[in-house]
Design a protein around this nucleic acid. Structure first.
Lengths: 406, 406
DNA sequence: AATAAGTTCGGTAAGTGAACGAATTAAAGA
DNA sequence: TCTTTAATTCGTTCACTTACCGAACTTATT
């Protein structure tokens, strides 16, 4: 209740947990040294958490002079979290433990009826994951849902997601919360991808990154000071509207965005048809380019040039540590090469442009990071924003690539 | 020393001061309600600060049921701060009290010899301001210096400031600290202007703003979540390199920036000469345009169009609550009109574009905000980043326009 | 014997709730 | 109209709780 009673304890608890999470199995004495707390305080806090099941003793040190130390770690199965990547074509869901390790993963085609049917599909998948894991459903704490659109925080609807029918007509967060009875966090998939790349990429080194997704549409997720940049109306990273590639003053650009008209799926198909007269899919154009088709090469080079300009704009304005490029089109290495070549010719400093490390698992990983962050905040700091909560350390990259279904 | 001993008190102290600063003369009982602390705790903290001279009783409530309350306020003269705007042509310096009120202001031409001579000039101006105020020099706590370049945090030199000779060869912060014996904060002037506009503009409503300065060069200051966005190499807001107006792939654009080549002082003079064959200053071109000179109108319209595209890029990427335009060129109302007209034709949402409210006092006001923030942090939270420190409320706008020398 | 881990004990800082005294206004009654 | 009483708020005092630390001590190793 009181201001005082808790805040000091919360800070101490939080730093103890941070130390244990970050420095693996560790003795209470070492935690005391790391945190600056006294040995008794650490012992008391650890004892409390051990009783509640969040921490467990896992062994003893050996080989050092002096008494052996009992080492503790976060009890991984004390809670479960679910991360779901809801796409226009596929739903990907993962069940993870408290350390972020993926226990089980599921991939299904998205329920074509959309709307409430998708809600049922997601909750069915999550329940099925929990039962395969053999855990109690009670242990499931949070689910993060990545969506290809803009979540409206007031209504819970997902706006600007043309690929999922009726998703702008329902309260996704509310419905899922009702069906699953756990905390639900809904976030844009590109934003989650940015967090995922940041979490598994260079967390600790830099707290700063831009993720550029190029596929059916173009969007960017921006991580600043470890947090997502959302903007005043949730539209930060709407780089599809950057004025490159097509005339931004044309009425058409006001609808779909000048850059999106010049560098996403539709543009590649269209531009190739205009040049060559042939109908080809996006992979088809890439294939044609690699076998020497001049028209295809020109089309892709134009895309690369416009993406390079977009990256230049991002870098000029926010100066991130690096730009990670992903999405079905963006992860093509032959495109990335060209992007880097163009970008290096129009910016005075070196820009770090990299391919996504996580591929189509980026949003899923970002969801796990978000859920873990949230869970740590609510469990160990009890909602107090202490300002020093960091993401728990990321598990290995491979962890998120176990399920290599397209 | 201990983690515990201080942090709780610091948080309490900080919230008490915040309440008093934000809610003007206020009784201890009200502070207790606002902060959630108990009355005794508040009394104790207020008593401590009153002894030290930071707070003072200023009267009693009257007319309400119940016992009269003694109301307290921040003692304005308990400390002084200085804000200096070091420009290529002029040095502007202001002395302010703890509430941010400007006590005295000075304006001088910048010492043309540059380097260490500028250091002497600044410290002489600050000392002279303090003696005119009749205060003791001991009361001066912090000076913030706004500079037209990038402060190098390692060496203390100011990079990319061609208008002040030798300023990249000296340690500005170190030298001033040695001459004045107080804390010195050196910051880019556009960044300070952004903070200033934010502080006096819509602080409280939105914690989010972009300031675009167009003059000899082009730069932007970006405030996100109430803080300056600096970027990984301190280059956030380097919008002069945005690829608009001239070909970004030309080698010349790598030096001075594509947009800067198309929309700053030099571009206006040059483009007008190319079109008309005549040499005119920037004010000359503006005058010609207003009296119907077609060439001048075209030149300025091109500038406006390119600025509009830059604003579009900023808005697409960071989605600020508004974009404030300033600088010697940017504050021209006839230009702003055109910028707004162009911008509204190429972005789907309404963009709030406004003229600077503070004019050439923006950087000065930003310096005051920075100094106050810093002072509050060090005095009342004793350096602990509690995460909830906000800027003290801004005084009236007019406060910063007292001295209307150009 | 030296060293480190972990516990026990006494003491301090900070903060709370409840009770109380002080000061004031509003309203009821003479 | 004047006086008394009730209601209300401000601010302090007091007893108690929580959280933490340092030092001394026990335990278990090399």
């Amino acid at each position: 209740m009181s201001n005082y009673t808790n805040i000091s304890r919360k800070i101490s608890q939080s730093s103890v947990i941070q130390a244990i999470v970050n420095y693996g199995p560790i003795s209470r004495a070492s935690v005391a040294k790391l945190t600056g707390l006294s040995k008794q305080t650490v012992s008391e806090i650890v004892a409390n958490f051990e009783v509640k099941g969040w921490l467990r003793a896992v062994g003893q040190t050996e080989g050092h002079i002096g008494r052996r130390a009992v080492v503790y770690e976060l009890s991984p199965t004390a809670a479960l979290i679910a991360s779901v990547d809801l796409g226009g074509a596929k739903v990907r869901a993962a069940l993870c433990d408290l350390t972020g390790r993926v226990l089980f993963e599921l991939l299904e085609p998205t329920e074509p009826k959309g709307g409430q049917d998708v809600v049922h599909q997601i909750s069915r998948m999550i329940r099925s994951l929990v039962s395969s894991s053999g855990s109690s459903y009670e242990d499931l704490h949070t689910a993060v849902i990545g969506v290809p659109g803009v979540p409206d925080t007031d209504t819970g609807a997902i706006l600007l997601a043309p690929n999922i029918a009726g998703i702008d007509q329902i309260n996704l967060e509310g419905s899922l919360n009702q069906e699953l009875g756990i905390e639900i966090i809904v976030e844009n998939d590109v934003n989650l991808s940015a967090l995922g790349e940041h979490w598994l990429g260079d967390q600790g080194e830099q707290d700063n990154l831009a993720f550029l997704s190029i596929g059916t549409g173009i969007g960017a997720g921006i991580v600043l000071a470890g947090n997502l940049l959302r903007g005043i109306s949730g539209a930060a990273g709407e780089v599809g509207f950057l004025p490159f590639g097509t005339d931004p003053f044309e009425p058409e650009s006001l609808k779909s965005g000048a850059l999106e008209r010049a560098a996403a799926t539709y543009a590649i198909i269209n531009n190739y048809k205009q040049k060559s007269g042939q109908d080809k899919t996006v992979p088809g154009v890439f294939e044609a380019a690699s076998s020497g088709d001049e028209d295809a090469i020109k089309v892709l080079d134009d895309v690369a040039k416009n993406i390079a300009l977009a990256i230049l704009a991002i870098v000029s304005i926010i100066d991130p540590s690096k730009v990670v490029v992903g999405g079905s089109i963006g992860s093509r290495p032959e495109l990335l090469e060209r992007i880097i070549a163009h970008a290096s010719r129009c910016f005075p400093r070196q820009i770090k442009i990299e391919k996504t490390k996580l591929g189509n698992h980026a949003a899923l990983a970002g969801g796990v990071a978000t859920a873990l962050y949230n869970l740590h905040l609510s469990l160990f700091a009890e909602g107090q924003d202490i300002g020093t909560i960091t993401f728990p350390p990321a598990p290995s990259l491979e962890n998120f690539k176990a399920c290599e279904l397209s």
